[in-house]
């Protein structure tokens, strides 16, 4: 299947402060936050790729970098076969109607002083479409598709609940019929029962509109429910990539194991005994040498502390970055 999106060795570093004169003199590299450190993956047409990881793993940066909302430090992004990484600003803007994003916070992602109809219409307006009635027709039909009646059009965001605001965000993202949809924690700010409504809506839309999506969340149950295949991120890197079922049936990377073991089960009879989960996320400014997970890994051995594991291909669609699996 053809890849709609292909990302190779994507790196994003955020510089901290100014390089001091001494640093420059001694040629020391400037301190930076290593948000993304060489991430590669493909998203096939009509597929939903899940990205799961905890805070600081880089998944939010990934969402922004892939859409060129923040310029990558290095690496390549191929969209529909074209290299878009270093496109000039005007060309990037023209691409926007094809790649859209849904944000996490339903409150702050909608301009409080704009009416719903103008908020949803914005991506269309940005394409240069001037026909007002055409725009409003599309807005109306999009709002109906997400389950909101057309009399929401003239109201303001604060008049709606969190779940409804998220639907408005979805309508906005889909109004231009994008090819690629990035969902950055779309239900994390919603209650469980509202989350269920929004997730069901998203699944239905993805199917009906033939969307290709990247679903990002820290909640592994939700990611697995929504995605065909998954990449697991840790400290700015992808540690494992596999189809959802395979990942759950047999997680390979020790971090994936840890992550799955940490998920609270809704079955009290399955309470786990004392876990071997130790430690916390590494500092993004100075990650540990070798494998970044080694300080917390129950299987770590000498090589892990000094040599960075490369991506090992287990099968056509499975990769893992761990010395345990190196040939």
């Amino acid at each position: 299947m053809q890849s709609l999106l292909s990302v190779k060795d994507l790196v994003k570093h955020y510089a901290i402060g100014e390089a001091s004169a001494l640093d420059k003199l001694f040629g020391r590299p400037q301190k930076a936050v290593h948000a993304l450190d060489g991430v590669s993956f493909d998203v096939a047409q009509n597929e939903t790729l899940g990205v799961v990881g905890e805070s600081g793993c880089g998944k939010t940066t990934l969402a922004r970098a892939v859409l060129l909302l923040t310029p990558p430090t290095s690496g390549t992004i191929m969209f529909e076969g074209t290299d878009i990484t270093r496109l000039p600003k005007q060309d990037v803007r023209k691409l926007r109607s094809k790649m859209q994003i849904i944000f996490q916070d339903p409150i702050s992602s909608l301009d409080p002083r704009m009416r719903v109809r103008d908020i949803v219409a914005e991506p269309l307006v940005a394409t240069g479409e001037k026909n007002r009635s055409l725009i409003m027709d599309r807005v109306r039909s999009m709002l109906e598709k997400v389950g909101l009646s057309s009399d929401t059009m003239n109201r303001f965001p604060h008049q709606f609940s969190g779940g409804q605001r998220q639907r408005i965000g979805i309508a906005r993202a889909l109004v231009c019929n994008p090819e690629l949809l990035v969902l950055d924690e779309p239900t994390s700010a919603l209650d469980a029962s509202i989350q269920a409504q929004v997730l069901s809506l998203l699944r239905r839309l993805e199917k009906d509109l033939g969307l290709t999506s990247i679903f990002i969340s820290h909640n592994i149950s939700v990611v697995c429910y929504m995605s065909d295949s998954i990449v697991v991120m840790y400290a700015g890197e992808i540690v494992e990539a596999a189809p959802t079922r395979d990942l759950l049936a047999k997680p390979l990377h020790p971090y994936t194991e840890t992550l799955l073991a940490s998920v609270p089960r809704t079955d009290p009879s399955q309470r786990r005994p004392e876990e071997k989960i130790v430690g916390e996320q590494p500092s993004p400014v100075s990650p540990p040498p070798g494998c970044r997970f080694h300080p917390r890994c129950p299987y770590a051995f000498e090589k892990c502390r000094s040599v960075k594991p490369g991506q090992v291909t287990i099968a056509a669609d499975r990769r893992v970055a761990c010395h345990l699996f190196a040939k």
């Binding site: 992550l259 073991a261 989960i277 130790v278």
Partner: peptide, 11 residues
Amino acid sequence: LDVTIQAQILT
């Protein structure tokens, strides 16, 4: 808290 940290605190 992150889910792995949460598991530690609950334990």
